[in-house]
Design a protein around this nucleic acid. Structure first.
Length: 830
RNA sequence: GCCGGGGUGGCGGAACUGGUAGACGCGCCGGGCUCAAAAUCCGGUGGCCGCGAGGCCGUGUGGGUUCGACUCCCACCCCCGGCACCA
């Protein structure tokens, strides 16, 4: 018999052509009975070749989708492009090639490469956020939010990237002051910008996390970012002049008797009003200095505390004591109320401030047990020197003091968030124009829905302007008539953050070319929330947060009926080279192209699945892909050698569950069911490495019973062996899709494995009659015995005592206790 | 400092709700095939002691709970990620 060699380079293009010709991956969304929306985060269309990260993310995700399809789900696996954004525009600034042209070329380039992966993407539903048919609805979304008061324009201190020449959202600022895009140090600027009122949903965004099948760490990141803290706002009456009050926020009202000063942020609006004449100059100087200092500098933990006295005092709401009011730059204008009550006895920062400026320090809480340590005691304990509360437990005091303050009209419970509203306007060209017109007479006017899209003009000087949108230079674009009064007016020159584009694309995939509406609510009801979403964890507090907000807002506006966009989420790990992140500058880049050229796309995908724990990632090893490619050949040879069995007879599915006489056949049958069970459960939960290991076990077992170089043994049951081979090929479907289809064809089947059923396993068969029971003496394994399943505890204990060398080991010592785990283990304690 | 995630053979990685630690693979060792090599097939492979049967040790460290702990509890150490003068 001549052996056909496994040649991925012949097989793979052949099958991709066939799949395309069969339109195998077109999803019938209306007709689907068991929808499964398998979504990968769409990508920015780059002009480069795909890197390992792309393959590592998309390959296994597609394998999961294939697995689901074989299990009877109607899988929808779309692909699209997050095509607006800075790289294309920066490239244009450098080369003069228009972003629309480079994007178009990159999209084509990328599609061609993506197709080589052999994934099930439904290419008929591709979308591109930079096309008018898409961004028209991004603008519609903006208008919906605007009308509901969820999109608004205001002047605020915002982050400005001097390199990218645009403002950024808080979420796009890393490590306090680094631009997420370019790595430049960002600055604070006071500018009038567009915001989405995401803070309105802070609580719901927090609570909704509980019900999501998301990784804990991702939920933790969002919780951290939202930063909810419960506390009390307290109003302090300022003594003379007038009726002014200063509102402070604290999470520890139980320390209120320890307040020895108040401190206002330098930007606080009341500073000007309360400052006494003799301190005015000094305070003004301090505020000017604070303004010049960067936020980073001001808020760095190491920075020594500084402040200046205003000369004014506030009256303590409970003791009536006069409390000095200071201005201090460690107090943040943007958090809480911009004013704090200083409790140097029980807060580290307040203590540093009090020490530096020689203010009194009072102790009002003592630790319950331990002796007081150095510095401020910040825990709870027994209340001291606190009027009527003295002697109480500080935690019990909190509700009582809140009640007293509320009763006096000087305090109330409140909640603070770290989350800020989402800044969505950008001073860049390559994005969706904000659909707003500014009219001298009517003010800020929304572009009527029927006039959408506000098209991004092609012919624009998009070189970077001095802090202004390139569209500001396009008179043709700007000049328009006010939709309300008809008088000449000007369009808003800014474009939207690309995260607005990506915050709703999963709705649009359902019908990306619908000209009537952004999405079909019925299809949304049927297909969403997305069943399975995969992508990088770097989007935890960006895309994933924004999308949740947009979904909730659209729900409240009656456009969708779901609370959350993504029911299940997984993140792929990172593939490194020699322990380091791959990067062009380091020159340690693994090029998929080279490996695909040598081993094929199947081997490349299969190695990425087998060599790593998906969510962890790990270090690339050439030996790894060689080994996996070798294993694919092993599977190939197995089918090649035994394919004649399929010419002899059809596969009998009953062969899997039939009763077999010989030990060897029973064992093969066991391995077959164990393998299918393991692969099924592991694939479902994205444990690709162990799933492949299970299939390897079955392949090994088949090699065992029918050595590949010998004639097919007489004592091997042909029905069973054939069924096992059949199951193996099916399980190869998600692991090596091209190879599986080739083998499928070679055993005489039509079409594709993705439309074949995933093999079943029978738990009854895995419940063997005989079980191996481990015998321990004092917790140490000493013997094993084969017994029939289902023996009573007494029986097992008795048999264990007599088994093998156990009597010898017991040596006549009385067994004090016998622990029996039925069918598994006996532990004899002497 | 707070919040997550992690630490298991030479390596990548397994281990369900506490029940035979190291599945599967790489590497290595041995064997078959070959004039030879590659490829491939078969066997072995946590460490230490022992000719052997077998014994002892072993999942970051130190304690604890338990008949029994990679798994649970307490106290630490180290690595990765997020947040952070957030009151």
């Amino acid at each position: 018999m001549t052996e056909d060699r496994y040649d991925p380079h012949a097989i793979e293009p052949k099958w991709r052509r066939r799949w395309e010709a069969m339109d195998l991956f077109h999803a019938d969304l209306q007709g689907a009975e068991r929808p499964c929306y398998a979504l990968v985060m769409f990508a920015y269309p780059s002009g480069d070749r795909l890197h390992v990260g792309h393959w590592y993310h998309y390959g296994p995700a597609d394998s999961w989708a294939r697995f689901r399809r074989m299990r009877g789900w109607d899988v929808f696996e779309p692909w699209g492009f997050d095509a607006f954004g800075l790289p294309a525009e920066n490239y244009a600034v450098k080369t003069g090639i228009h972003p629309r042209d480079s994007t178009e070329a990159n999209v084509a380039n990328m599609i061609e490469q993506l197709k080589a992966m052999g994934a099930m993407w439904d290419w008929g539903r591709t979308l591109n956020t930079s096309e008018p048919e898409y961004y028209r609805w991004t603008q519609w979304l903006f208008l919906q939010l605007h009308e509901a008061g969820l999109a608004y324009r205001k002047a605020a201190p915002v982050w400005w990237c001097p390199v990218d020449q645009t403002v950024l959202a808080n979420e796009q600022v890393l490590e306090g002051n680094v631009c997420e895009r370019c790595g430049a140090t960002v600055e604070r600027r006071d500018l009038t910008q567009w915001f989405f009122r995401i803070t309105e949903y802070a609580d719901e965004l927090l609570e909704g996390l509980d019900d999501l099948e998301w990784p804990d760490r991702t939920k933790a990141l969002q919780r951290n970012w939202i930063g909810r803290s419960e506390g009390v706002e307290i109003d302090w009456k300022v003594e003379d002049p007038g009726e002014r009050t200063i509102r402070t926020f604290t999470t520890r009202p139980d320390t209120i008797y320890g307040v020895t000063f108040l401190a206002l942020a330098p930007e606080h609006e009341l500073v000007e009003e309360i400052v006494r004449e003799e301190h005015r100059e000094e305070v003004a100087a301090y505020r000017a200095r604070a303004r010049r200092r960067s936020e980073i500098e001001r808020t760095a933990v190491e920075t020594e505390k500084s402040g200046v006295f205003t000369g004014a005092y506030a009256r303590h709401p409970l003791t009536g004591e006069a409390i000095p009011i200071w201005v201090a730059d460690f107090v943040l204008a943007t958090y809480g109320t911009g004013a704090i009550q200083g409790v140097p006895g029980h807060d580290e920062r307040d203590r540093e401030f009090a020490t530096a400026l020689e203010l009194p320090i009072e102790t009002v809480i003592e630790p319950r047990e331990a002796t007081p340590e150095e510095g401020a005691y910040t825990g709870h304990g027994t209340v001291v020197d606190s009027g009527p509360y003295t002697g109480m437990d500080s935690e019990e005091m909190i509700p009582e003091v809140i009640a007293e303050l509320a009763h006096a009209g000087q305090g109330h419970k409140t909640v603070n968030y770290r989350l800020r509203d989402w800044l969505v306007s950008r001073q860049r060209y390559w994005g969706a124009p904000i659909p707003i017109v500014h009219c001298d007479a009517c003010g800020e006017v929304a572009v009527p829905e029927e006039e959408l899209p506000v098209e991004l003009p092609y012919d624009v000087d998009f070189s970077l302007g001095a802090g202004k949108s390139p569209l500001e230079r396009s008179e043709a674009f700007l000049r328009t008539a006010c939709p309300e009064c008809g008088e000449p007016a000007r369009r808003d020159p800014d474009t939207m953050d690309t995260f607005v584009d990506s915050s709703w694309y999963y709705f649009r995939y359902l019908d990306p070319h619908d000209e009537e509406k952004p999405w079909d609510p019925e299809l949304v009801a049927k297909w969403l929330p997305v069943h399975m979403y995969s992508g990088g964890i770097e989007h935890a507090t960006l895309h994933l947060l924004y999308s949740r907000f947009v979904t909730k807002a659209m729900r409240d506006l009656g456009h969708v009926g779901i609370d959350e966009p993504f029911a299940r989420l997984v993140h792929q790990g990172t593939i490194t080279k020699e322990g380091a992140r791959m990067s062009k500058s380091k020159g340690n880049v693994i090029s998929p192209d080279e490996y695909v050229a040598e081993y094929g796309a199947d081997a490349f995908r299969a190695y990425l699945m087998f060599g790593f724990s998906y969510e962890e990632g790990g270090d690339w090893k050439d030996e790894g892909i060689r080994a996996v490619a070798g294993w694919l050949q092993r599977v190939w040879r197995l089918v090649d050698r035994h394919g004649h069995l399929f010419e002899e007879a059809e596969v009998d599915p009953g062969a899997a569950t039939r009763e077999y006489e010989g030990e060897a056949m029973r064992e093969l049958q066991l391995v077959r069911h164990r393998s299918v069970k393991g692969a099924t459960e592991d694939l479902e939960q994205w444990s690709f490495n162990t799933a492949i290991a299970r299939v390897m076990e079955l392949v090994n077992a088949l090699y065992q019973v029918a050595p590949i170089d010998d004639p097919f043994p007489d004592d091997v049951d042909r029905d069973l062996f054939r069924e096992c081979l059949d199951a193996t090929i099916r399980m190869m479907g998600p692991i090596a899709p091209h190879l599986a289809d080739e083998l499928w064809e070679r055993i005489g089947r039509e079409a594709s494995v993705v439309d074949a059923a995933w093999p079943e396993f029978d738990p009854q068969i895995l419940r063997t009659e005989e079980v191996t029971v481990v015998i321990q003496v004092n917790g140490k394994v000493r013997e094993e015995m084969e017994v029939e399943r289902g023996l009573s505890e007494e029986e097992l204990g008795a048999r264990a005592r007599e088994h093998g060398r156990i009597p010898e080991l017991l040596d006549g010592k009385p067994v004090r206790k016998t622990i029996v785990v039925p069918d598994r283990l006996v532990n004899l304690v002497v």
